[in-house]
Write a protein that binds this DNA or RNA. Structure first.
Length: 595
RNA sequence: GGUCCGAUAGCUCAACUGGAUAGAGCAUCAGCCUUCUAAGCUGACGGUUCGGGGUUCGAGUCCCUGUCGGAUCACCA
């Protein structure tokens, strides 16, 4: 049963009976801890239709609900707030409906399809902390929609072509001496990244020399021989020069292999990959089509532009004067291709940092100008940058936090702390490894997901490896604790079949509180989906774990003499474990049986 | 300079979209393991919600204004 819905219905009935009117929206909110009750009706707005003061209105509604419905056992009125105490028998019904629903937390398919893009790295350097936030966020949003019954397509666009990869290629050609991941023992993406750094180092030196020779700063970068080589490679690549294409394929291959293992460890996946090299030509054609039908215009030097001044934006280049495409060009092609591939999708979500807000504003306007009605279904899930205590991450200053390194550190730390706490003395090496992986990544994911995505966040390494308090491991620990209880119950032969615990008619406050939390799960999923905010679920899981721990500490389960109550508490505990597991799974976090 | 976003406890974050005396975690201090896992629980301390106006029964939340951060406005991606 849906208590919230039922209450709203009853309240409307009360309004009709008492005042002969209804309202569009009844303001029902959780009751503050300091007052008795679980649901609070805000009665200030109702004073208008009752033609009485808020307190009097609240009292009348409260009395009606107690006498005319089976839900409310008593009530109190504080100012214009009507605090309702739901009967324990009703809470038991709420619990029962959750217990009996094997698919609680997963809604049936709703026949809607959406696409979620995330990750989408460049292929010239390894993934870093910013990508971790992006990936965990995109993955979690996708899982949230799946839980709500949507068919979800997880995709990414791989920026595999362009000047950035040519820079790595140029440096490798000059200094690489045939080095490969195999020969060097370096992970592919890191190896390619090494040459990207090498490129930058050499470019800087060459630019410095040129400036000393009297070349202007702006020209120096273009004239530097190593930059010339990279630009030449980009040109050759577009002309399909076999040698260049071969090198490009080889080095991208190294990167994909490296990314593959990183994604695997992160626990994220994709249903379909798009490659910029395969979409930019479509984008180019679309731009030319837009030029023909007057959506865009050409400047004297041959470059193609879109004028968005009537939309409050600027003019934006779509094709360079030499006819080559820019970032925007391929994004146009990619978007069109995706809607061709998946004509049923009703929304496309781009998980991309907020530094690109302008870009997406422009992109969506361009798609609309090209006549695509679905342009309005495109949404930029814009998230804030991850800052370090030392300030911004800057690849050029070497302050980026590498994704592979960070995950390893978290796992090592988890293992260290497990050992210190003496948790894993009887475990095998394999079990220790798996558990540390689960805890380390759980800590990392929770840390990055608990903050509202829109907000910029601070990544303090010391705080992120905390395993106590508002953390993933705290929740994982609660799950493990409950599982221990379930195991004990099983060895004692206690099985919570319905007949027994349905006789339970009174609840402890902690039990009531936890049932209330659980009953809000679907609501929280909807809220998280609406706001594209896994933080809602992260905080839900934390609150639930916290609530259960309060129950756990105040009530020794196996000391209970009443067998019906004992069985109820086993069932109750197993439901909590299950909901924690599901909520965490939606966040991409696994929970252990023991820890 | 234009546009957009942000500012809440010493620190990191919440606050159900306008509701009650603004809540958690960390840190600090004081308690709780002979009892189901102490990675836990209980309590204490901690606030002019950046400043100033306004809207209304009611504002951290909406409007105006100022201050301070950040992003963006490339023939980069």
């Amino acid at each position: 049963m849906n208590l919230d819905q039922s209450l709203r219905t009853e309240i409307q009935k009360a309004l009709t009976a008492l005042f002969n009117q209804t309202v569009d929206h009844v303001q029902l909110q959780p009751t503050n801890q300091e007052f008795e009750g679980s649901h609070t009706l805000v009665c200030f707005p109702l004073a208008k239709i009752s033609k009485k003061g808020p307190e009097e209105t609240a009292r009348l509604i409260g009395e009606y609900l107690v006498t005319h419905t089976g839900f409310v056992s008593r009530f109190n009125v504080v100012k214009g707030f009507l605090n309702l105490v739901i009967a324990d028998r009703v809470w038991m019904e709420v619990f029962h409906s959750i217990y009996a629903n094997k698919n609680f937390g997963n809604l049936p398919a709703n026949d809607q399809e959406i696409m979620i893009e995330y990750s989408s790295p460049n292929t010239n350097k390894p993934l870093h902390l910013g990508h971790l936030r992006n990936n965990f966020l995109g993955y979690a949003v996708a899982e949230i929609y799946k839980a709500l019954g949507y068919t979800v397509h997880k995709v990414q666009i791989i920026n595999d072509r362009g000047i950035h990869i040519c820079k790595s290629m140029a440096a490798w050609k000059l200094f690489g001496k045939g080095e490969t991941p195999h020969s060097s023992g370096i992970k592919g993406d890191h190896l390619v990244g090494k040459y990207y750094v090498e490129f930058d180092k050499n470019l800087k030196a060459q630019v410095k020399d040129l400036i000393q020779q009297g070349v202007s700063e702006a020209d120096a970068e273009k004239q530097a021989p190593i930059m010339q080589l990279a630009i030449d490679m980009l040109r050759k690549w577009e002309a399909k020069d076999p040698e260049t294409v071969h090198l490009w394929k080889t080095m991208n291959g190294w990167v994909y292999e490296g990314f593959g293992s990183t994604y695997k460890r992160m626990g994220v996946d994709f249903d379909k990959l798009y490659y910029e090299s395969e979409t930019y030509l479509l984008g180019k054609n679309e731009v030319l089509r837009g030029l023909d039908n007057g959506a865009f215009f050409k400047k004297d030097d041959g470059s193609v532009w879109v004028d968005l001044t009537s939309d409050g934006l600027d003019q934006k280049v779509l094709l360079r004067s030499d006819g080559t495409s820019v970032y925007m060009t391929q994004d146009i092609g990619t978007a069109i291709l995706r809607f061709r591939d998946f004509p049923k999708i009703s929304r496309q979500v781009y998980t991309v940092g907020n530094e690109q807000e302008y870009h997406f504003k422009v992109l969506f306007l361009i798609l609309a100008k090209l006549g695509y009605a679905w342009a309005k279904e495109c949404y930029h899930l814009s998230y804030g940058m991850v800052d370090l205590p030392t300030g911004k991450m800057k690849s050029r200053e070497g302050t980026v936090v590498d994704a592979d390194d960070l995950m390893q550190e978290m796992v090592d730390e988890a293992e260290k702390q497990s050992r210190e706490l003496g948790k894993i003395e009887e475990a095998t090496d394999q079990q220790i490894k798996e558990l540390s992986e689960m805890i380390g990544l759980g800590a990392l994911k929770f840390f990055l997901l608990k903050v509202d995505p829109k907000k910029r966040m601070l990544f303090d390494p010391n705080e992120s490896i905390q395993l106590q308090g508002h953390t993933g491991p705290f929740i994982q620990y609660t799950h493990a604790r409950i599982r221990a209880i379930i195991r004990k119950a099983e060895t004692m032969g206690i099985s919570p079949d319905e007949g027994y615990w349905k006789n339970v008619n009174s609840l402890e406050p902690a039990e009531r509180e936890v049932i209330f939390l659980i009953s809000n799960y679907i609501h929280k999923l909807n809220e998280a989906a609406r706001d594209y905010s896994p933080a809602v679920i992260a905080n839900f899981a934390f609150d639930l774990a916290k609530g259960y721990n309060q129950f756990y500490q105040s009530i020794p389960i196996f000391n209970e003499a009443d067998q019906d109550k004992l069985k109820f508490r086993i069932a109750f505990s197993s439901v909590v474990a299950d909901v924690i597991k599901r909520a965490m799974a939606v966040l991409g976090i696994q929970v252990p049986e023991r820890m």
